[in-house]
Every structure is written in structure tokens, then in C-alpha cells.
């Protein structure tokens, strides 16, 4: 579904991603782990061109995203939902409006239909009663669940999660992971950058370990967590587990 070929990204002289080639298949849950500064967030953000790759190609559902005109890129981005570490809800809109603005403005869906979808999704993430609240009145965990619902409102084919629980208080991590867990079970294709090893073990089909801009090692959770081959992977896992 997503085909990454010779992806490189540098900020100034700093080469952050070094010649990465990888594939994400339909229905697959890929979890990316690694020490901070390893380039895993940048890797994720390159997938929907939030960061423009310095070189290499990203292909999504048969279309090469790099070099695409803006209009066409916007269309494809609608199919790639993204969830951010800092939620990034629109503070001037109610929860419901947060969910309906993009479907209405970018997809041209009627308000009635958009609101119906939004309410269904809020039900799913357990926040139906917060539809008319403003984001500032919600807890971090609630905000992140709204953010997930907002991305889902576009009916995406793949969901990208950029450290979705890192900014949360510990007691709120669970509610967000549960929503993600349910989403994975429903068959959604997901790429998740996270430090939650428990989630990776339980939900991932495949785990990628990144360090210093390259994918050092990958495999099923069992392979990677029980029997890591690379010394850097072993070192990292020894610290976090």
C-alpha cells in the first residue's frame, strides 16, 4: 500500500534519514521504535509529505506522492489520517466542528452527513457527550481520542500515529491505546511511532527498530523483542524493557 524507495531526508547538513526502502501492506500494523533522535518521527512524517523528502520516492496506492501537484496531493492526504503527539485540535471549534470541517471543506460532504459520521465516530471513541464542548475543556486523553476520530472522519485507508501517547499523563495513556487497539482489530492499516512497547508486542504485525536514520532491524514482535540480533537493538531494548 505504501512503498518507500531510497528515502533520504536532511535538515541542512544533518542527514536524518539514510536511504530507507520499506513497504507497508494493506491491513498491516507496523510499529516503529527506536531512541529519540533516531529519525522515526521524520520517517513517519515523510509518508504523507508533512516533510518533503530530500530524495527518494513515496508511492501510495500506486501513485508516486513526491513531485505531485498540490491539489492531487491534498486528495491523497485525505486517505492518510495522521495523529500528532500534541493533538493539534482546532481550539476555536467545538469537538463536533473539529470532526466535520475537513470532510465538508475538503471533500464537499454535506453538513448533515458529516455530522452524522462525526457523531458515530465520537460514539466509537467514547466521547459522544462531548460533541459540543471546546477542546480546552477536555483532558489530554480525551483530546487525543477526538484527534483520532477527526482523522477517521475522512475515512482514510491508512492511519499514521506520531507518538500519540507521549504528551499524556500516565493514567490517560490506556484510554488512547484502547482506541488504537480497537482500530487495529477492525483491520485498519496503521503505522505507529511509539515508546509503548506493550502496545507494540500486543498489536503490531511487524516492528521496525530505527537508529541513526536507518532501519537497523525488523521482524514480528516475538522475533524482535525475544531474540534481537543487532547489538544496538539489544542495547535499546535492555534500557526500555
Amino acid at each position: 500500500m505504501i512503498d518507500i524507495r531510497h528515502l533520504e531526508k536532511s535538515f541542512g547538513d544533518n542527514l536524518v534519514l539514510k536511504d530507507i526502502s520499506e513497504e507497508v501492506h494493506k491491513g498491516e500494523v507496523v510499529v516503529v521504535i527506536g531512541p529519540s533522535g533516531s529519525g522515526k518521527s521524520t520517517f513517519l512524517r515523510c509518508l504523507n509529505l508533512m516533510e518533503v523528502p530530500t530524495s527518494g520516492e513515496i508511492e501510495f496506492e500506486g501513485t508516486v506522492l513526491t513531485n505531485l501537484k498540490e491539489g492531487k496531493l491534498n486528495e491523497l492526504r485525505q486517505k492518510m489520517g495522521m495523529v500528532f503527539q500534541s493533538f493539534n485540535l482546532f481550539p476555536h471549534m467545538t469537538v463536533l466542528q473539529n470532526l466535520t470541517v475537513a470532510p465538508m471543506k475538503a471533500k464537499g460532504i454535506s453538513q448533515q452527513e458529516a455530522e452524522q459520521t462525526a457523531k458515530d465516530l465520537l460514539e466509537k471513541v467514547g466521547l459522544a457527550e462531548k460533541a459540543n464542548a471546546y477542546p480546552s475543556s477536555l483532558s489530554g486523553g480525551q483530546q487525543q481520542r477526538v484527534a483520532i476520530a477527526r482523522a477517521l472522519a475522512m475515512n482514510p485507508a491508512v492511519m499514521l500515529f506520531d507518538e500519540p501517547t507521549s504528551a499524556l499523563d500516565p493514567e490517560m495513556v490506556g484510554e488512547v491505546l484502547k482506541v488504537m487497539h480497537d482500530l487495529a482489530k477492525s483491520g485498519m492499516t496503521m503505522v505507529v511511532v511509539t515508546h509503548e512497547m506493550g502496545f507494540a508486542k500486543e498489536v503490531a504485525d511487524r516492528v521496525l527498530f530505527m537508529d541513526a536514520g536507518v532501519i537497523v532491524e525488523q521482524g514480528t514482535p516475538e522475533e524482535l523483542f525475544e531474540n534481537p540480533q543487532n547489538p544496538r537493538t539489544q542495547d535499546f531494548l535492555a534500557k526500555v524493557l
Partner: peptide, 25 residues
């Protein structure tokens, strides 16, 4: 800048992002 990113990640164009997300704030 997270506001722009969120809007763009949802597939909203530059104009819609400006008009509905950035400008009102």
C-alpha cells in the same frame, strides 16, 4: 504550526487551511 499541519494532514488545501483554521485563530 501544528494547526497548519493538522489541517494539511486532513487533506485541506492551503486556502481552506488559511480561511477556516489559521485566520479565525
Amino acid at each position: 504550526s501544528g494547526q497548519t499541519e493538522a489541517a494539511r494532514s486532513l487533506g485541506m488545501g492551503h486556502r481552506d487551511t488559511m480561511r477556516h483554521i489559521i485566520f479565525p485563530q
